[in-house]
Design a protein around this nucleic acid. Structure first.
Lengths: 204, 204
DNA sequence: AAGGTATGTGAGCAATGACTCGTGTTACAA
DNA sequence: TTGTAACACGAGTCATTGCTCACATACCTT
């Protein structure tokens, strides 16, 4: 089990030309990950698909892992943003509304580009790319903070509960994605998750 | 994303000598998976570690995937057995007792050999080894059946609820394993899962 | 124009991968 | 004892991998 991830610093692109190169590389990585999974991901293939020489790739990315990490970070940021944007709206809402909003935000993030998302998620697991788990941590903080402001829920430990809920909701969505992506479109599925959340909160 | 898994049939060992060879190969696979993760798993390395020639390996396993699959199946069977054994005891129990028993069974399965378990689980995700998900399916059936016998819970759709609970509980345990294996020893952690289960069931 | 820095190239190296196949060895039945 | 099927071997094939490096071209400053 590999734990370390050495990420030697590489040149940051300064000119616009280089910016485009980096972008192309990231795009290509995403494409291959989406179409062939992590198995089919090789630096040579990425370079070829990006229309860039292998040397250029290594000018900006120190190794293969850093490609996935970069993508994962991007992805993670999106997710945090989505949740963060919604959390503001949660404060005025009822528990039920809040739960629904949270669940739907999560589902929506995963619905766009599910294959890529799945590939990235499993790759984070397989490699020790724990850093990319910050989305989880951040989401948990937000939820925990929100929980503390409510007096209409029955939770002993907001942090633990937040951890539980974020994990449960996200995992349910992942699992659904894995078993059958169409499940995400089933309202009954969303409802069930919402109910789990609401009940777990012991809403009064 | 690879979907196919071609598993050409190979010779089944008939003599005891061959039985031992197969066992050694499986052992070695587990060892490497546990120590180095799936990254470090190669058929050559497995053969060497098992003290067996690479040719012998390919006599019984058609390819690398089949090694993981064999291990996953073994593992999966253990898990189902554990749950199945406990489910019998669930019928007489209170909701709370039942939930606790289920959660603890799940935790206990994962506590033994967590590294191996984690490696196998992610590998199932990465490759399309959906077949090995039968433990999930079977556990769900058992829980759903049990739910239908209870009139002291408030669930609309036993199948959906069972899916939800199994997913949530298992994922929580996986996530904990990934973040910090010691979490499994924390009673507060188990309690939190149990509470989630009990509340989700809407116990009267 | 000159010169430096940033960017880009791709042949090729060393390592490793999965897997085959021809050959030797053991077990067992006749 | 002998024949044959099961078992075991491991050198070797061929493809691919991550990655380097010596060199070329573009860009910007002076």
């Amino acid at each position: 089990m590999e734990v370390v991830e050495v990420v030697k610093p590489r040149k940051k692109p300064s000119q616009e030309r280089a910016q485009r190169t980096v972008e192309a590389i990231l795009q290509a990585t995403a494409h291959i990950l989406r179409e062939e999974g992590a198995e089919g991901l090789s630096t040579n293939k990425v370079a070829k698909r990006a229309g860039v020489s292998i040397g250029s790739l290594y000018q900006y990315f120190p190794n293969k892992n850093s490609l996935i990490l970069a993508l994962a970070t991007q992805h993670s940021d999106d997710q945090v943003r989505e949740v963060a944007e919604n959390i503001g709206l949660l404060f005025g809402a009822s528990i039920h509304e809040a739960a629904r909003r949270f669940v739907e935000a999560t589902v929506s993030v995963h619905r766009q580009d599910p294959r890529l998302h799945l590939a990235i998620t499993s790759e984070i697991l397989v490699r020790g790319l724990g850093r990319a788990l910050q989305d989880h941590a951040r989401a948990r903080e937000l939820i925990a903070a929100w929980l503390r402001t409510r007096d209409d829920v029955d939770v002993d430990d907001p942090d633990m509960t937040a951890w539980m809920l974020v994990t449960a909701v996200e995992s349910a969505v992942h699992m659904a994605l894995f078993e059958d992506p169409d499940k995400l479109d089933d309202p009954a599925f969303t409802d069930a998750i919402v109910q789990m959340v609401v009940r777990t909160l012991g809403a009064r």
